[in-house]
């Protein structure tokens, strides 16, 4: 497994070939760094909200505690600000639509400038991933932070595997393929959850 460097990234990004690393749009070439690609904050947000239910249930006994009832959508345009409050969870996505070939996976982390403000993001994306990169924003500081839509919020480090992985062909249907907006957690769709609930009844 090897970390892709600038030369390798430039050679594989948006070539139009089956093994390309697809990132669209790349607004500036400078987004491709020495060992990573900067990605930008997208336009759509899902903001966590309180409702009268006490908790999010991953296996709801009725449909009033499902995760989606605890989020509200918001949209901004390029250049608009979005306020991230302390201890608030917000789902966002990258501005870019990303397609990873079967031999590349990506670690996505917040850029140092935002990490220092208290915004930390850490995610990984499997080979074959398709969609806007999901960003789970959380403000660890004690002051609200104004994020700007379109700013370079995260960086993706891309690793080449020795062997191809047919991630989307193996196992159950992947839950988040092709997403272009933030998507509520589908943890409740994990097949283990139903089994565990049954176990707990015995």
């Amino acid at each position: 497994m090897s970390l892709l460097t600038r030369t390798e990234l430039q050679a594989r990004i948006n070539t139009g070939k089956p093994d390309q690393i697809f990132i669209d749009p790349i607004l500036e070439e400078s987004q491709i760094g020495a060992v990573s690609v900067d990605l930008r904050l997208g336009c759509d947000f899902l903001v966590s909200i309180l409702n009268h239910k006490p908790s999010v249930q991953l296996y709801p006994t009725d449909n009033t505690s499902e995760p989606e009832l605890f989020f509200q959508n918001a949209r901004r345009d390029l250049g608009d600000t979005f306020l991230l409050h302390p201890s608030q969870t917000v789902l966002a996505t990258s501005l870019e639509y990303v397609g990873l070939p079967s031999d590349v996976y990506a670690d996505v982390v917040s850029r140092s400038s935002y990490h220092r403000l208290g915004v930390s993001i850490s995610s990984m994306f499997h080979p074959g991933f398709r969609g806007c990169i999901s960003l789970e924003l959380f403000n660890h500081s004690n002051v609200p932070i104004e994020l700007i839509v379109g700013s370079r919020l995260v960086q993706a480090r891309l690793f080449r595997n020795e062997h191809d992985v047919a991630y989307f062909q193996e196992g159950p249907r992947r839950k988040y393929i092709g997403n272009v907006r933030p998507t509520i957690s589908r943890a409740s769709h994990d097949i283990d959850i139903a089994q565990l609930v049954e176990l707990s009844k015995k």
Binding site: L27, C43, L78, L95, I177, G178
Partner: peptide
């Protein structure tokens, strides 16, 4: 899936145009 891809394709064009 198709509608999302179309929406994002249009949005990418708009973003590039504005940029």
């Amino acid at each position: 899936t198709v509608n999302d891809l179309v929406e994002k394709s249009i949005r990418n064009f708009e973003i590039k145009e504005r940029w």
